[in-house]
Design a protein around this nucleic acid. Structure first.
Lengths: 314, 314
DNA sequence: CGTTCACGTGCTCATTTGAGCGTACGACGC
DNA sequence: GCGTCGTACGCTCAAATGAGCACGTGAACG
């Protein structure tokens, strides 16, 4: 009787969606109103969602992307993944998400190993007081003394510890030493070795990564020159993790340099039960891919754009 | 046991919303997962919608704003109202909506009276073939001959008629005449009077309005000079409806001019059972207000911005 | 011309959901 | 310390919804 072109049915779908979502009528009422059965109304509503006519969005600074998270977990065999939607201040959102994740982490870690840097500092800021009760925070890579920037390094660990009603153990060592002997000497030093032992015994690690370019905080802090970094890039470096430069496969690009770097080794990180990797920003896609594919982390906290980059890699 | 700050509950709300809308889990499952009762899940979901955390949008060229439509109906005692959301080509969307409205209009009009202009032309374009079966389309105001623009005036009526499997009756007269005697003579002319009689007998009218400024199509067509319009504005004109300039109260600004205008009178429009007024664009807010408040129309088809302007008037 | 297949339809039934209600708990004033 | 109020809670019950099924229709094909 009444011929139904596909365009007509789309128009009908729109009317139904309006009545259902804007006017909160029941599917029954809508059916009566528009002269269709309520089952058809239901079917068209399902279609409307599938075809994107009806878009449901969760607008909130702490919103997440569970679908992408699942894909990441499955694709890379991660224990967990946290992905926040794109927004104007992604870095802060990701830090917030990492703080939330840490707070919700069960069992609550008694010893937490952390790296340092802008990202970690931001995570510390977003943690709320009492996120844990009596946590021991251990620095897992050196670099306290040389850092000029206020409010980083030691204060990051201290803030996380204080907000978790515990105490911080700092690693009193430069990040990278000039000579191998010095590095060996300091690593076997009673104090430093003690800290590294505690770090190795941590229940969980929380760390970020740096890009391999002149903007690196390791350059900024004076441990490496711009030329050093350029040379590392030439050798295939994509970025650094706890002070150690790695290539796309997650291997140290320069074994010599790696030996002169004080802190937890990459293998210890790989062996860890819980290694939470926090990474945000388009510049860090490559290093993020290296970390995730080489299984340096068991949990990733990142933004949607980075997650998409990870997933689209063949 | 677990203290719930308002921020915590908001975070919980967000998690629930994600699981419900993105992962389509049932409220029960979510409750079990997050350790709350399903009733709390339901309540928080309601809140999430109320507080705007969850936003449901209908993205479609033919979407409408039923809430605003209801307000318009109630506020101005309209028989019906159609409001389309803001978009980049509002004018086309409104024309589409008018065409849809006309198509869905029951009883199907046997005689339809129309004005002419850019808006009406666009409505004609958006009508689909077979929107009616055997409709008679009558022009309700003059202006055929002088119009220089291709694809307007007579072709508008012809297109609407042809798509409705009927025929058009044109009003063979200028819109405005220079001398009153000429106007009276032409109006009593057998042909013209016949058309006007048919126009008066229409079951429904469809018309738009023009702004009172130099961009008016009446100026463009040579019926009025820019000075004439400026003078009308000085007298309080806000725009024209079927060729007749009215003030904010819906009265003709210049009775002399009004008598020299050939076509359906405003009173006939006011008395009509179905007078569909199509108006789009920010420039037409004033004339729209005049038409609606002075009850020149029984149905309005417009955009969200115009509707908002109408509703915010005290 | 008959057969098959895909699809849309209206239905039954189980699940899911929201409205309404009595209750417990905490804040506040006395 | 005690009563009162408001709020949030868990629950009952009825309404609303989605999954699954049998049927009819129309198109493609032999």
């Amino acid at each position: 009787m009444t011929p139904q072109s596909s365009e007509d049915s789309e128009l009908l779908t729109v009317r139904i969606a309006e009545l259902y979502y804007d006017e909160n009528k029941t599917q029954d009422e809508i059916g009566a109103l528009l002269g269709v059965t309520r089952w058809k109304v239901g079917r068209l509503l399902t279609q409307a969602r599938e075809r994107g006519i009806v878009r449901i969005e969760i607008m909130h600074p702490r919103a997440r992307r569970l679908g992408i998270e699942r894909e990441l977990r499955e694709r890379f065999g991660l224990r967990d993944a946290v992905v926040v939607p794109v927004s104007d201040d992604v870095r802060s959102r990701v830090a917030q998400a990492a703080a939330d994740y840490l707070t919700a982490l069960r069992p609550v870690p008694r010893i937490l190993g952390i790296s340092w840097g802008r990202t970690l500092d931001s995570v510390a800021d977003h943690l709320s007081i009492g996120w844990a009760t009596g946590v021991t925070v251990v620095q897992i890579n050196g670099g306290v003394s040389l850092n000029r920037r206020p409010g980083t390094a030691s204060t990051t660990a201290a803030e996380i510890a204080q907000k978790g009603r515990g105490h911080a153990i700092l690693l009193p060592s430069p990040a990278i030493l000039e000579r191998l002997e010095t590095a060996r000497a300091i690593s076997t030093d009673r104090t430093v070795a003690g800290v590294l032992d505690r770090a190795a015994a941590a229940n969980a690690y929380l760390y970020s990564a740096g890009v391999a370019d002149s903007s690196s905080i390791l350059v900024d802090s004076g441990y490496l020159s711009e030329e050093d970094v350029a040379e590392l890039v030439r050798k295939g470096a994509v970025g650094d993790v706890v002070g150690r430069y790695i290539d796309a496969n997650g291997n140290p690009v320069d074994p010599g340099l790696d030996e002169r770097t004080v802190g937890l080794g990459l293998e210890q990180l790989r062996a860890a039960q819980t290694a939470i990797f926090v990474v945000a920003g388009d510049a860090k896609h490559d290093i993020a891919r290296a970390v995730v594919t080489s299984k340096l982390c068991s949990v990733i906290v990142t933004d949607e754009s980075t997650a998409a980059a990870l997933l689209e890699a063949s």
